[in-house]
Amino acid sequence: MPPRPPRPRPVDPPTEVIPRVEDEDDYDDEYYDDDDYYDDEDDQPAPPPESFARKAVRGFGEALITMGMVVLLFVVYEVYVTDLLSAEKQEEATAALDSEWSSNVVTPPPSDPNRKAKTTLIEGKAFAKMYIPIFGNDWKFSVVEGTTDKHLEIGPGHYKDTAQPGEPGNFAIAGHRVGKGAPFNDLDLLQSCNAVVVQTQTQWFVYRVLPMSNEVAGWASNPKSKDAACAGVAPLATTLGDAYAKTVGQEIVVPTQGEVIASIPHQVNATVPPEKQARLLTLTTCHPRFSDRQRLIVHAIETKSYPVADGFVPPEMTEG
């Protein structure tokens, strides 16, 4: 405080100054007292009585937190770690397939592409490569024979006893939608006429997704049917008869409906001679995502095939 100018009246200073100084002192004392008081309290809780109930409640809480962490870790495992493990297996399978293809003498495909030697498929071994150009250039998987959990960890798996690529009947493949490389993660996004390209040692096969159930009725008048991509694609009931009435681009079924991978989907007991059967491709995966309540099924029909040649890539591969 700046020194005040001396005041004319001498009576005031004692009444003003002395009580104020005392007040400040008192305040300081109280402040320090408080500090000491709090310090004491901080020291006190160190030895609390550990009752049984207290331990039990804490143990229960810790157990709940631990279980929550385990569940979160499982999600991480399912969505990311299995991808890493499967990527390695898929790479090995692809490498094995590549070396097999390059070491074998490639016999030129028969002049009639409808007649070709049937390859013997070995379970767990890759025998074909699969591309879906609309999903991007990097979408490629080697397809293995067999659909057990072990096989599907490697990549999409071919249902045993269904047709081979390019054969009349139903070339059926299962694949994971979540984790394990999730090859069929986006299967629900496939539209009619999207290409699915399958490469074997000797041939390329171009399959195209069939018209969806809501497109079947007006397909002829649908402008989409005039697209170049849709050449050879039409509702199968109109081209091949009623046996194929239920075969549409996409369907969602219950897991027990194995008839979707029959030679003629949904017609297990049909007696159509092979030469009159369509060359179909069927992809199956779980639905909805993260659940196994239903199955998502995509049907496609072969529209083109090319012999494998050095440096040749089907033009369909650049679609997308």
Binding site: L73, E78, V81, D292
Partner: peptide, 21 residues
């Protein structure tokens, strides 16, 4: 958990079956 427990438990859980029977 990642390399022993989860790989064992996973096939028993109803998340990831993709085939039809």
């Amino acid at each position: 958990l990642m390399f022993v427990v989860f790989p064992w438990a996973e096939p028993k859980l109803p998340f990831n079956n993709v085939t039809t029977q």
